[in-house]
Simulated scan of single mutants.
Amino acid sequence: MGRRSSLWTPCYLMRDGNGSVSRLADEAEATQLGMGAELLGHARAMLNDRRVSNGELRYLGERLTEALCDVLRIAQRRGAARGPAQEAQGDRPGRRGGG
């Protein structure tokens, strides 16, 4: 049984990954990641359009910041669910030791 931080409160859910709350959390994470990917596509299009106003770019920056916060929270939750031993082994993929 693993632990996973809640999406809504600063607490942890004890789970085996099969409960209704875990499924709800998985669905919420998938929605957040999907929305972030969609936003990234809009951002690329807007940045290539010279007619976009400063106000629109500011709004885009605010939404991108929100999406990045969501992704970082998801990554932190997933890291906490892995546990310290797994984090130490797989913490930095592709990075070689020795400096």
Rank of each mutant, 00 (worst) to 15 (best):
T65A: 15
D70H: 08
A30T: 04
S22N: 04
R78M: 06
G36M: 14
G55I: 08
R63Q: 15
D49N: 15
Y59R: 14
G41N: 11
W8K: 00
Q32V: 10
R50K: 15
M14S: 08
R58N: 13
R78A: 01
A67F: 01
R50I: 13
A80G: 08
M35A: 09
G61Q: 09
T65P: 08
Y12Q: 07
A28S: 05
R73G: 00
A80Q: 13
E66T: 15
R15T: 13
A37Q: 14
T9K: 02
P10E: 00
A67Y: 01
V52W: 04
L39H: 02
L33E: 12
L13D: 01
L40F: 01
L47T: 01
E38H: 10
L68K: 12
E27N: 07
G55W: 09
R58V: 08
G36Y: 09
E38P: 05
G61P: 09
G17W: 05
L24V: 06
V71F: 10
M35Q: 12
S22G: 02
A80N: 10
N54R: 14
N48E: 14
A43M: 06
H42V: 02
Y12V: 03
G19C: 11
V21E: 04
D49I: 10
M1Y: 08
L60T: 03
G55R: 14
G79R: 14
R4D: 00
R63F: 06
A30C: 04
M46F: 03
S6M: 00
D26H: 11
G41M: 08
R44F: 09
T9M: 02
L64R: 06
A75T: 06
L7G: 00
G17H: 07
S6C: 04
A28H: 07
R50T: 13
R44A: 09
L47E: 02
D26C: 08
S53I: 08
L39E: 03
T31N: 08
S20Q: 07
A43V: 01
E27C: 08
D16Y: 03
L39P: 04
G36F: 14
G34V: 02
A37R: 15
